[in-house]
Design a binder for these strands. Structure first.
Length: 422
RNA sequence: GGAGAGGUGGCAGAGUGGUCGAAUGCAACUCACUGCUAAUGAGUUAUCUGGGGAAACCUGGAUCCUGGGUUCAAAUCCCAGCCUCUCCGCCA
């Protein structure tokens, strides 16, 4: 969320940001509620000051063995007023907070302004392979190789679930092991294995709530949610904490399953494994000092790119436009891997800088060494990378004419040295 | 799931209605003393928020798990929730 004071002092800037996002959010209503709130707060505080003073007087009288009856009587009315005003104040604060939680982040000045088609392709890596046969889609490949059982996944869970089988299951496991090993041994990340169920506060901290409640799986008997990404538990690890300046930057990586209802996306990517309710992902999360966060975003993207490069998958890096970046993000790059069988670029990673937006919600701060002042950290995260779609890219890129798959070299040591799946 | 105990500052721990943002100890920092270290002495050290000031700083309000309640007044009393610990039950 944005700082109310910042909004108050930079109302025009925030309004421009909302326009860039094509948001219809009415900022003036926030400013009004804030004004009201501050007025009442001032009154409450003045009355409280009187009350505190009277308390001292009563204490002094008692100590002097005098009767404080009169002072007590005179404070009854003040007390009643305080009570009433505090009730009003609580309502206004609740209103304001509710509104603040629904204001999206301000896009960074480098973000292309406009609709999703204003996204900028920053760079390409690799050359799409030329086939001397018609490449199959991953769905055909999976069925023929018997490595994903779509029908039985639907039987036991429902549509858009996956059941990996045999070498398919092993490939999945090989991939996230490879990615975790890469990030921990070469990129300086510490591995985390977090809970998959989190509470409401945690979901609010990273910005999924209150806006996205419909998109998440929620328990019936407890106010808990299945995580849609490891970003949620991992970013909140330092919630309500003050870190030392020396603790920064801090890099964490985690493999988790990710759960998404994908409500409202019926009809989109229904076939195969493009859009499923449960998928595996290795996530990278960074906690950094504000002055470094944009440089850190670039290395974060590079870390994700390394995964695709080592897998030998052609991809492109896309800087998303102001209407396409997520609610909490100030800037976001997507990595899209080429899938020749499906004939599409697939989003396999999303790397974002949230600046202080999540840190303010989750209350993640650090103390400057020289000034001893406490500040919000900047948080970033990026997929490194999302699995189901990466599996699609691997299968479709590495397929042979006979329908077998050559296993990328970096994965072979995780697959008993196997070279092909056939 | 049942029974009991408890949640106070960076940590430990006192405080059962008013002089308590909170004793004391530890840790950290500053200064003094001292070849160095250690020891000793003096001092400083929570967070949020409003106002004044160029700034050091001065000043109002809030915060003793969270939310309600009682009261002129709550860390302290009452209720609910969350969490932790001990014992019992269940369990991979």
């Amino acid at each position: 969320m944005l700082d109310m004071r910042f909004i108050r002092e930079n109302a025009d800037l925030v309004k421009t940001a909302l326009q860039k996002r094509n948001s219809k959010f009415d900022l003036d209503s926030v400013l009004r509620v804030d004004d009201d709130r501050r007025k009442v707060l001032g009154e409450v505080e003045a009355l409280r000051a009187r009350q505190n003073k009277a308390n001292d007087e009563i204490s002094a009288l008692l100590k002097a063995k005098q009767d404080p009856k009169e002072t007590i009587a005179s404070m009854k009315e003040i007390s009643r007023q305080i009570n009433e005003l505090e009730g009003q104040l609580a309502l206004k604060e609740a209103d304001l907070n509710k509104l603040l939680l629904t204001i999206p982040n301000v896009p960074h000045e480098s973000v292309p302004v406009g609709a999703p088609d204003k996204a900028v392709i920053v760079r390409n890596w690799g050359t799409p392979r030329q086939f001397d046969f018609k490449p199959q889609s991953h769905v055909e490949l999976c069925e023929n190789l018997d490595i994903v059982d779509f029908a039985r996944a639907t039987k036991i869970s429902g549509s858009n679930f996956l059941l990996f089988k045999g070498w398919g299951a092993k490939l999945e496991r090989a991939l996230f092991n490879f990615m975790l090993d890469l990030h921990t041994s070469r990129h300086g990340y510490t591995e985390i294995f977090p809970p998959y169920l989190v509470n409401r506060k945690t979901m609010t901290g990273t910005g999924q709530l209150p806006k996205m409640e419909e998109d998440m799986y929620r328990l019936k008997d407890e106010d808990m949610f299945l995580i849609p990404t490891a970003e949620v538990p991992v970013t909140n690890i330092y919630g309500d904490e003050i870190l030392n300046e020396d603790d920064l930057p801090r890099y964490l990586t985690a493999y988790t399953a990710c759960f998404r209802r994908e409500a409202g996306s019926y009809g989109k990517d229904t076939r195969g494994m493009m859009r499923v309710h449960q998928f595996d992902k290795v996530e990278m999360v960074k906690f950094v000092k504000p002055e470094n966060s944009y440089a850190e975003l670039e290395t974060l993207v590079n870390n994700a790119e390394t995964v695709l490069q080592l897998l030998g998958l052609p991809y492109r890096v896309v800087a998303l436009s102001s209407q396409d970046i997520s609610f909490a993000a100030a800037k976001c790059y997507d990595l899209e891997a080429w899938a020749p069988g499906t004939d599409k670029w697939l989003e396999v990673s999303s790397c974002s800088n949230f600046e202080g937006f999540q840190a303010r919600r989750a209350n993640i701060r650090f103390r400057r060494k020289d000034t001893k002042k406490v500040e919000f950290v900047h948080t970033l995260n990026g997929s490194g990378v999302a699995l189901a779609r990466t599996v699609i890219a691997i299968l479709e890129n590495y397929q042979q004419k006979d329908g077998s798959i050559i296993i990328p070299e970096v994965l072979r040591r995780y697959l008993d040295g196997k070279e092909t799946i056939s």
